[in-house]
Design a protein around this nucleic acid. Structure first.
Length: 597
RNA sequence: GAUCCUGUAGCUCAGCUGGAUAGAGCGUCCGCCUCCUAAGCGGAAGGUCAGCAGUUCAAAUCUGCUCAGGAUCACCA
C-alpha cells in the first residue's frame, strides 16, 4: 500500500523533473526514508539534478513542490526539507485499510505469493550417527527450519530433507571402541540418552588413539609387537567388513545407529525441528557411480592412467577433482551427485537449497558445476545457503579440548534458567505449566540468538554471557507479546464496558501508533525480502523493532483506560493487528508464542 | 601460495540496491513500580565505520591496494 504510493509519487516527481529540466534523460529518482518521522514518510533527494538544472538542490525541491501542488498528484502532503522533497502520508486515513488487511489475513497475514507453484527442497542438519548435536548443528537446524517456514510463507511448496551420515570410518570408530570397551552396556543399562552414549565411545576411541600415538612415539618398535593394536588400522579393517556386509559388524552398526538416532530424534523434537523425508548415507553412498560413468561416456569426465575418474575444473577457475577412486570406490562428492539426482527423481523440485556451513563452499561450487556438466538443467537452481561458524570467545569449539557446547545440555541449562526466572518473579500461577513455559522461553532465546545474526557471518557465543533474557532477545519479544495478549484478554473480559464505542482509525495519531501501523503494513514486504534472501535475521530485527516501539507506546499510553472508549477500542484493534504480526513472525523464526509469561 | 568470507562503541550484533545527526542490546553510571506483566521504560557516557587511495554533488555502503582475522584448496566426510 505505502510502497505503491511511494512509487506513484516517484513517477509523478520524475515526470515533473523531466519537464523542469527540459530533457527525458534524467537520473533515476531514489526513494529514501527521512531520519525522523516528523519529516515525512518518504524522501526524494534532489542532488542528482542540481548540475543540469544549474540550481541548488533545495531550490529544485521547492520548485517541484510548487509546480506539483497545482496539479493532480498521488495522496500525501509534500514538504521541502533542505535538498529533499519529502512526502507525508496521511497514515490515519490509511490505517483503517492497514488494520483490515491484517485482520483479514489472520494467521496467514504476511504470507505472499512470490514463490507460489514452486517446489523447493531444503536440506539441512545432516548429523553423524556417532555423537550428539552441538551448538554448530543448532545454528544449522534453526536456519534450515526457519528458511523452510519463510519459503512456505512466500508461497512455495517445501520439502525438508535430512541426510543421515551413518557410514564411514568415523562411524566405525565409535563401534570399535564399544566393541572393545563396552562390556555389553547399553543406553538402557546406563540410563544415558542414546546419542550421548554412542558419543562417549567416539571420545573413548579418540583417547585410545592418542594413547597409541604416544606408545608409538615412546617405542617405535611397538608396532611389531603382536599384542599391540593400532586403532586406525583396526577402524579401517572394520569399515571393510562393513562394506562387505559382514553380519556381526552390520548388526552392531544397526544397533548403535538406532541408539544415536533415537537420541537425535528427541533432540530434534525438543528443538522444534522436523523433516519430511530422511535420506541415509548408507543407502545413497553408491548412487553417484552410474552418474560418473554417464559423464565418462558423455566425455565430460576423464579416466586417468591410474584408473581414477576426474573432472577438469579449469573452466570455473579450479583445479581437478577426483570423482571415483582408482579402486572404483566412491567419495563424498560422488555420493552427493547421486543423491541430488535421486532427489530430483523422487520429488522434481524447482529449487534445492543446501543449508551447510561455509567451510564447504568449495564442495558445493564443484558439485553444482559437475551436475551442470552432466546436463541437468536444474543444476542452476541449486543453492548453497552458506552460513558462518559459531565460535567461542577463545576461538573454535574443539572436541579434544572439551569446549564443544552440547545442544541438549545448553537447552536444559536455559530451561532451568527460565524456570528460575519464572519463580523469582512469582509468575508460576499466571504461567500455568511452568516447565513447558520455561522450555518455550529457552527455545525462543536460543532460536532468536542464532537467527538474529546474518547467516553468512561467523558469530561468537560466550556460554557465560551470550544467552540472556533481557534486551534484544527472544524472551523480550515473547514478553512483549504476552503483555499484548494480557491486555486483549482483559478487554474481552470487560467487553461490556465498551459497548457502543466504535473504532475510529483517525484517532491513531501519535508517533508510535504511526510506526506500528507502518510496520504492520510492510510486514508482507518484510517476509518477502527475508524469504527471497533466505535470511531470517530480517524477520528478527523487524520483530525487535516492533517490540521496542510497543514497549515505549505501552509505557506512555493507556490502552484499556484511554481518554475515550472509542480510543480504547481503536487501540485494541491496533495491538491486535500487532500481535498478529508478532505471532506470525515468531512462527517464522522458531520463537514460541506465549499467552502469558 | 591461490580462492572465498569477515573487520562498525569495552563486548555481541544491526545498518551496506550510495543520501539528512552511524543504531540497538549487554556492560558502566543516573532515574522510574498507588497505574493494562519492571523479562519493562527514560536518560548519560562510549565511534578515525581496520588503514590508504579512487569514483561521486554525496561513501560505513561502490572500486583498488595494504593490514588483521577466519575458511577452503584430500583418491576424508
Amino acid at each position: 500500500m505505502l510502497n505503491e504510493l511511494k512509487n506513484e509519487w516517484k513517477k509523478t516527481i520524475e515526470a515533473e523533473l523531466r519537464s523542469y529540466l527540459g530533457t527525458d534523460e534524467i537520473p533515476e529518482l531514489s526513494i529514501g526514508v527521512p531520519p525522523k518521522s516528523d519529516m515525512g514518510d518518504a524522501a526524494f533527494p534532489m542532488f542528482p539534478y542540481a548540475k543540469s538544472a544549474g540550481k541548488a538542490p533545495a531550490l529544485i525541491a521547492k520548485d517541484i513542490m510548487e509546480a506539483l501542488s497545482g496539479k493532480d498528484h498521488p495522496e500525501g502532503e509534500m514538504l521541502v526539507a533542505g535538498p529533499y522533497l519529502n512526502i507525508r502520508f496521511d497514515i490515519p486515513s490509511l490505517s483503517g485499510k492497514i488494520l483490515e488487511e491484517a485482520e483479514k489475513g489472520g494467521d496467514l497475514y504476511g504470507h505472499v505469493s512470490d514463490l507460489s507453484g514452486k517446489k523447493i527442497m531444503v536440506e539441512f542438519s545432516c548429523p553423524n550417527t556417532n555423537k550428539p548435536l552441538h551448538l554448530g548443528h543448532m545454528r544449522n537446524d534453526s536456519l534450515g527450519e526457519s528458511v523452510s517456514h519463510l519459503l512456505k510463507a512466500a508461497g512455495a511448496e517445501v520439502m525438508k530433507v535430512n541426510l543421515i551420515n551413518n557410514r564411514g570410518v568415523h562411524i566405525c570408530k565409535s563401534m570399535l571402541a564399544y566393541k572393545l570397551f563396552g562390556n555389553g552396556e547399553t543406553p538402557e543399562s546406563t540410563g544415558e540418552k542414546g546419542d550421548h552414549f554412542v558419543g562417549r565411545y567416539y571420545v573413548r576411541f579418540a583417547n585410545w588413539e592418542k594413547e597409541a600415538e604416544e606408545a608409538k612415539k615412546a617405542n617405535p618398535d611397538i608396532i611389531n609387537d603382536p599384542s599391540f593394536i593400532d586403532p586406525d588400522t583396526e577402524a579401517q579393517k572394520m569399515l571393510r567388513l562393513w562394506e562387505a556386509g559382514d553380519k556381526e559388524t552390520r548388526e552392531l552398526w544397526q544397533k548403535m545407529n538406532d541408539w544415536t538416532l533415537s537420541g537425535l530424534a528427541e533432540s530434534y523434537k525438543n528443538m522444534g525441528i522436523s523433516f519430511d523425508r530422511l535420506y541415509y548415507e548408507s543407502e545413497t553412498y553408491k548412487l553417484g557411480r552410474s552418474e560418473v560413468m554417464k559423464g565418462l561416456e558423455m566425455g565430460v569426465f576423464k579416466k586417468e592412467e591410474d584408473g581414477s575418474v576426474q573432472v577438469d575444473l579449469s573452466p570455473i577457475g579450479l583445479d581437478k577433482k577426483v570423482l571415483l577412486r582408482r579402486d572404483g570406490t566412491t567419495l563424498y562428492m560422488t555420493q552427493d551427485l547421486g543423491t541430488a539426482v535421486k532427489r530430483h527423481e523422487d520429488w522434481p523440485f524447482d529449487s534445492l537449497i543446501y543449508v551447510v556451513a561455509s567451510e564447504q563452499n568449495y564442495h558445493f561450487k564443484v558439485l553444482f558445476y559437475v551436475l551442470s556438466l552432466l546436463g541437468y538443467d536444474w543444476a542452476k537452481e541449486l543453492h548453497h545457503l552458506s552460513y558462518g561458524m559459531v565460535n567461542l570467545p577463545e576461538g573454535k569449539m574443539k572436541s579434544r579440548e572439551g569446549t564443544v557446547v552440547d545442544a541438549d545440555d545448553l537447552l536444559e541449562e536455559l530451561t532451568v534458567l527460565a524456570k528460575n526466572e519464572i519463580e523469582a518473579k512469582g509468575r508460576e500461577e499466571a504461567v500455568g505449566d511452568v516447565s513447558e513455559t520455561a522450555r518455550k522461553i529457552a527455545l525462543g532465546a536460543l532460536n532468536y540468538y542464532l537467527l538474529q545474526v546474518q547467516p553468512q557471518h561467523d558469530m561468537v557465543f560466550d556460554p557465560k554471557k551470550s544467552i540472556s533474557f533481557n534486551g534484544n532477545t527472544g524472551p523480550y519479544l515473547q514478553y512483549t507479546c504476552a503483555r499484548i495478549s494480557s491486555i486483549l484478554r482483559k478487554y474481552e473480559e470487560a467487553k461490556d464496558e465498551y459497548d457502543g464505542a466504535e473504532s475510529n482509525c483517525s484517532l491513531l495519531v501519535n508517533d508510535d501508533e504511526k510506526l506500528l501501523l507502518k510496520s504492520i503494513e510492510s510486514f508482507p514486504e518484510t517476509v518477502r525480502k527475508a524469504a527471497l534472501n533466505y535470511d531470517p535475521s530480517i524477520i528478527a530485527s523487524c520483530l525487535y523493532d516492533n517490540a521496542k516501539t510497543f514497549s515505549h507506546y505501552y509505557h506512555d499510553n493507556q490502552i484499556l483506560k484511554a481518554e475515550t472508549k472509542e480510543l480504547s477500542v481503536t487501540r485494541i484493534r491496533l495491538i491486535r493487528a500487532l500481535r498478529t504480526v508478532m505471532k506470525n513472525g515468531f512462527e517464522l523464526i522458531g520463537v514460541p508464542y506465549l499467552e502469558s509469561m
